[in-house]
Simulated scan of single mutants.
Amino acid sequence: MEMILNENDIVVGAKFDNGTIQDYVDDAKTYGLIRVEDTTANWFLYNDLDSPEEMKAFYKKVKKEEHFIKNDFGEEIVLFNKNGTMSFEELTKKIDSYLDDEVMSSIY
Protein backbone atom coordinates (compact mmCIF):
# COMPACT_ATOMS: atom_id res chain seq x y z
CA MET A 1 0.00 0.00 0.00
CA GLU A 2 1.45 3.33 -1.09
CA MET A 3 0.47 6.25 1.14
CA ILE A 4 -0.74 9.51 -0.43
CA LEU A 5 0.58 12.60 1.36
CA ASN A 6 -0.64 16.19 1.22
CA GLU A 7 1.61 19.24 0.85
CA ASN A 8 2.39 19.06 4.61
CA ASP A 9 3.46 15.38 4.41
CA ILE A 10 0.34 14.23 6.25
CA VAL A 11 -1.23 10.93 5.12
CA VAL A 12 -4.53 11.65 3.35
CA GLY A 13 -5.06 8.36 1.56
CA ALA A 14 -3.44 5.38 -0.10
CA LYS A 15 -3.14 3.53 -3.39
CA PHE A 16 -3.13 -0.24 -3.49
CA ASP A 17 -3.09 -2.86 -6.22
CA ASN A 18 -6.78 -2.63 -7.16
CA GLY A 19 -8.00 0.65 -5.70
CA THR A 20 -7.59 3.77 -3.61
CA ILE A 21 -8.77 5.12 -0.29
CA GLN A 22 -9.10 8.77 0.74
CA ASP A 23 -9.62 10.16 4.23
CA TYR A 24 -11.91 13.07 3.32
CA VAL A 25 -13.85 13.87 0.18
CA ASP A 26 -16.39 16.37 1.52
CA ASP A 27 -15.81 20.00 2.46
CA ALA A 28 -16.68 19.41 6.14
CA LYS A 29 -14.04 16.61 6.36
CA THR A 30 -16.65 14.17 7.63
CA TYR A 31 -16.14 11.09 5.47
CA GLY A 32 -13.79 9.46 3.01
CA LEU A 33 -14.07 7.38 -0.14
CA ILE A 34 -12.84 3.88 -0.91
CA ARG A 35 -12.64 2.49 -4.45
CA VAL A 36 -11.86 -1.18 -5.00
CA GLU A 37 -12.27 -2.69 -8.46
CA ASP A 38 -15.89 -1.92 -9.49
CA THR A 39 -17.02 -0.84 -6.01
CA THR A 40 -17.09 2.53 -4.25
CA ALA A 41 -18.31 3.49 -0.78
CA ASN A 42 -18.05 6.37 1.63
CA TRP A 43 -16.57 5.67 5.05
CA PHE A 44 -15.67 7.26 8.37
CA LEU A 45 -14.52 6.34 11.86
CA TYR A 46 -16.91 6.90 14.73
CA ASN A 47 -16.53 6.74 18.49
CA ASP A 48 -19.59 7.67 20.52
CA LEU A 49 -17.55 8.90 23.48
CA ASP A 50 -15.19 11.17 21.54
CA SER A 51 -17.23 12.37 18.56
CA PRO A 52 -18.49 15.96 18.44
CA GLU A 53 -22.26 16.56 18.30
CA GLU A 54 -22.18 17.26 14.54
CA MET A 55 -20.60 13.84 13.94
CA LYS A 56 -23.14 12.15 16.21
CA ALA A 57 -25.96 13.71 14.17
CA PHE A 58 -24.32 12.61 10.92
CA TYR A 59 -23.91 9.07 12.30
CA LYS A 60 -27.61 8.90 13.19
CA LYS A 61 -28.52 10.11 9.69
CA VAL A 62 -26.32 7.48 8.02
CA LYS A 63 -27.80 4.72 10.18
CA LYS A 64 -31.25 5.47 8.70
CA GLU A 65 -29.92 4.59 5.22
CA GLU A 66 -28.20 1.46 3.90
CA HIS A 67 -24.97 1.14 5.85
CA PHE A 68 -22.53 -1.28 7.48
CA ILE A 69 -20.75 -0.89 10.81
CA LYS A 70 -17.75 -2.83 12.03
CA ASN A 71 -17.16 -2.23 15.73
CA ASP A 72 -13.53 -2.51 16.84
CA PHE A 73 -13.82 -2.16 20.60
CA GLY A 74 -15.76 1.11 20.55
CA GLU A 75 -14.17 2.57 17.41
CA GLU A 76 -16.54 1.93 14.53
CA ILE A 77 -15.79 1.80 10.82
CA VAL A 78 -18.97 3.05 9.15
CA LEU A 79 -19.59 2.44 5.44
CA PHE A 80 -22.45 3.91 3.41
CA ASN A 81 -23.43 4.85 -0.17
CA LYS A 82 -21.94 1.59 -1.48
CA ASN A 83 -22.12 0.94 -5.22
CA GLY A 84 -20.70 -2.20 -6.83
CA THR A 85 -20.31 -5.88 -6.19
CA MET A 86 -17.72 -6.06 -3.40
CA SER A 87 -19.14 -6.83 0.04
CA PHE A 88 -19.07 -4.42 2.96
CA GLU A 89 -16.90 -6.96 4.82
CA GLU A 90 -14.22 -6.93 2.09
CA LEU A 91 -14.22 -3.15 2.05
CA THR A 92 -13.73 -2.99 5.82
CA LYS A 93 -10.72 -5.33 5.49
CA LYS A 94 -9.12 -2.82 3.10
CA ILE A 95 -9.90 0.06 5.47
CA ASP A 96 -8.48 -1.89 8.43
CA SER A 97 -5.29 -2.55 6.47
CA TYR A 98 -5.03 1.14 5.55
CA LEU A 99 -5.54 2.26 9.15
CA ASP A 100 -2.97 -0.26 10.42
CA ASP A 101 -0.43 0.98 7.85
CA GLU A 102 -1.17 4.61 8.76
CA VAL A 103 -0.62 3.92 12.47
CA MET A 104 2.64 2.06 11.80
CA SER A 105 3.95 4.84 9.54
CA SER A 106 3.24 7.44 12.23
CA ILE A 107 5.27 5.43 14.76
CA TYR A 108 8.40 5.27 12.59
Rank of each mutant, 00 (worst) to 15 (best):
V36F: 14
K60P: 00
L91W: 03
F58T: 07
I4T: 13
D50H: 03
Q22P: 10
Y46V: 05
V11L: 02
F73G: 15
E2C: 02
Y108C: 10
P52N: 07
F44Y: 15
V12M: 08
V12K: 02
K29Q: 13
F44N: 03
A14Y: 00
A14F: 02
D27E: 11
D17C: 03
S105F: 04
V36L: 13
N18R: 02
A28I: 14
I107W: 11
S97A: 10
T40A: 12
G19C: 08
H67P: 14
E37H: 05
I95K: 03
Y46D: 04
K70I: 06
S97W: 05
I77R: 02
E54K: 03
S97T: 15
Y108L: 10
Y98S: 07
D23W: 02
E89F: 01
A28M: 12
E7F: 06
V11D: 05
D101R: 03
N83A: 06
M55K: 12
Y108K: 09
F58N: 00
S87C: 06
D96T: 11
K82E: 11
I107R: 10
T20L: 12
K93H: 10
K29G: 07
N71A: 10
W43E: 00
Y98G: 10
I107F: 05
N83P: 01
A28R: 15
T85Q: 08
K93D: 15
M55W: 00
T39C: 02
K82F: 03
V25T: 14
T30G: 09
V78E: 11
M3L: 15
K29C: 09
S106P: 02
E76N: 10
V25R: 04
N18G: 08
Y46H: 13
Y98T: 02
D50P: 00
M86K: 03
G32K: 08
N6M: 14
K82M: 14
I77F: 04
S106D: 14
T39K: 00
N81S: 15
T30E: 04
N81C: 10
T85N: 14
D38Q: 02
K15T: 12
E90H: 07
Y46N: 06
F88Y: 14
I107G: 00
